[in-house]
Computed example of a mutant assay.
Amino acid sequence: MERIIIDGDACPVTDDIIRIVENTGISVLIIRSVNHFSLAEYPDYVSTIYVDHGVDSADFRIVKLTTGEDIVVTQDYGLASLLLNKAQHVIHHKGYEYTTQNIEQLLTQRHISAQVRQQGGRTKGPKKLTQQDHDIFSNFLKQLIKK
């Protein structure tokens, strides 16, 4: 495993990831839009790349940079589907891995929700992450790294 790439515009577990990989030799690469610029200081094993604020700029850069040794963390189902055959692992911040078995259902649900919103309906947004959610993700990532 070479590194963990984070789709960093809205990743609620960035600090968890940085803490978990400390002293493992695994580097962390955060890809963010310039709209999400941060002055946060990170350890030497963490780097950040900022991309233009275009709709899919971060996604395109992540796809371009990902190798077969990387773990990518994203909540974007579309991006995850593009990376399934490219990255070693593509995972969600809720502590599960995207697979060829679950990605179709996730994309279908996303499409249905988009249709509802286009017709003026409302859909529920994601719930705020709880400490239990952080613990689930952290345990999942630690197990993945041990493999």
Results as ranks from 00 to 15, higher is better:
residue 6 I to H: 01
residue 21 V to E: 08
residue 39 L to N: 13
residue 6 I to L: 02
residue 20 I to N: 10
residue 107 L to V: 05
residue 70 D to F: 00
residue 17 I to P: 00
residue 134 H to T: 00
residue 91 I to M: 04
residue 95 G to C: 03
residue 122 R to C: 10
residue 23 N to M: 05
residue 3 R to Q: 04
residue 17 I to D: 00
residue 93 H to R: 08
residue 141 L to S: 08
residue 78 G to T: 02
residue 60 F to W: 10
residue 27 S to A: 14
residue 138 S to Y: 01
residue 9 D to A: 06
residue 103 I to T: 01
residue 117 R to E: 15
residue 44 D to V: 11
residue 121 G to E: 09
residue 59 D to Q: 11
residue 143 Q to C: 07
residue 130 T to R: 06
residue 9 D to R: 01
residue 15 D to M: 11
residue 142 K to C: 01
residue 21 V to Y: 02
residue 89 H to I: 11
residue 27 S to D: 08
residue 135 D to Q: 15
residue 37 F to V: 11
residue 90 V to S: 05
residue 60 F to T: 06
residue 27 S to I: 08
residue 97 E to I: 06
residue 42 Y to W: 09
residue 71 I to P: 02
residue 47 S to N: 12
residue 14 T to N: 02
residue 98 Y to K: 07
residue 107 L to H: 02
residue 61 R to C: 05
residue 65 L to N: 09
residue 76 D to L: 00
residue 132 Q to V: 00
residue 80 A to S: 08
residue 47 S to I: 07
residue 85 N to L: 08
residue 40 A to E: 14
residue 124 K to Q: 07
residue 11 C to H: 03
residue 2 E to S: 13
residue 82 L to K: 06
residue 146 K to G: 04
residue 81 S to Y: 00
residue 88 Q to E: 11
residue 109 Q to Y: 12
residue 27 S to V: 11
residue 143 Q to Y: 10
residue 130 T to G: 00
residue 114 A to W: 14
residue 21 V to C: 08
residue 86 K to S: 11
residue 9 D to Y: 04
residue 114 A to P: 08
residue 63 V to G: 03
residue 21 V to S: 07
residue 81 S to E: 04
residue 94 K to M: 04
residue 103 I to W: 02
residue 88 Q to A: 11
residue 48 T to D: 09
residue 128 K to M: 07
residue 134 H to I: 02
residue 52 D to E: 07
residue 120 G to C: 14
residue 36 H to S: 12
residue 127 K to M: 07
residue 63 V to N: 11
residue 89 H to F: 15
residue 79 L to Q: 04
residue 143 Q to G: 15
residue 6 I to G: 00
residue 85 N to V: 09
residue 24 T to I: 10
residue 105 Q to T: 14
residue 51 V to A: 06
residue 41 E to M: 10
residue 2 E to D: 13
residue 105 Q to H: 12
residue 53 H to C: 10
residue 125 G to A: 04
residue 116 V to P: 01
residue 123 T to P: 06
residue 142 K to T: 07
residue 34 V to A: 08
residue 58 A to S: 13
residue 130 T to V: 05
residue 76 D to M: 02
residue 130 T to E: 04
residue 34 V to Q: 09
residue 1 M to A: 02
residue 59 D to R: 12
residue 116 V to G: 13
residue 19 R to M: 06
residue 31 I to F: 06
residue 136 I to T: 14
residue 109 Q to C: 09
residue 140 F to G: 00
residue 38 S to F: 12
residue 72 V to H: 00
residue 1 M to Y: 05
residue 32 R to H: 05
